[in-house]
Design a protein around this nucleic acid. Structure first.
Lengths: 124, 124
DNA sequence: AAAATAATACGCGTTACGCGTATTTTGGAT
DNA sequence: ATCCAAAATACGCGTAACGCGTATTATTTT
């Protein structure tokens, strides 16, 4: 039914005609998306998310968070830790069973992961 | 072309048949998605993102971040990480040699640390 | 090497997408 | 309140393409 299409379009005070023009489709076609009479193609839903500045997942109600970060923005805010960085423990505390991980343990862990991945590779 | 469908499916070592069964469609139909011969419906792409534990936006290449998490899960992020929390990877990406750590790898690591600590204890 | 499982290719019937157009509704100006 | 234009909703039709079954080819397993 894509009711969020309607919500977002109205919040921006855009008309069906305007939306249709931006997408390059007929007004009746776009109207069908909002009413649930028709389903947009993947390409169209992709454009729609861009136009409305949100995620496809929000339009499909897989999430309630309407914000969407571009590829560049994402890399700034997504918490991702490079464990191979030997100074990582200076910035963040890693805990197992309530006890802080020592630098030695981290080193051993990395060696462990590398060995395991090598074995898995050969397995193919 | 949805090449990420292929990537994620293979990384989980699932067959076309298995994917088709999980989605409730024919194998040839699903194969069409990966090859680009067919396009999945919104319902199917939604299920696919769920199955492959990622976002629709990632499947459609609107983002390069494969992780998908809800608002509540996001709020778990803190400067100190409890690796024993089985949902930790939902919030934070851990990287070794440029490759994201899988849940399996983290679990094995925790078991590894516990065993090592147990041995050290006996040494006293 | 044979058997089994997985992946790719193709033809066909039917769904439903997208369009144009017509009708109804809304909102602003007089 | 009335008129009018713009916006929204409804509907019929042609056809693109979806989904299926099945056949063929490739890959893995025993």
């Amino acid at each position: 039914m894509l009711k969020r299409l309607t919500e977002l379009r109205k919040s921006k005070k855009w008309s069906l005609q305007y939306m249709a023009d931006r997408l390059g489709i007929a007004k009746s076609t776009y109207a069908g998306y909002e009413s649930g009479y028709r389903e947009p193609s993947l390409e169209s839903i992709n454009k729609l998310a861009g136009l409305l500045e949100t995620s496809v997942d929000y339009l499909l109600e897989r999430t309630d968070d309407p914000t969407f970060y571009s590829k560049e923005e994402k890399s700034k805010i997504t918490p991702s830790l490079n464990l191979t960085d030997k100074d990582i423990l200076v910035c963040v505390e890693l805990i197992v069973d309530g006890m802080t991980l020592s630098p030695d343990e981290l080193q051993q862990f990395i060696a462990f992961v590398r060995a395991k991945r090598e074995i898995e590779k050969r397995g193919h």
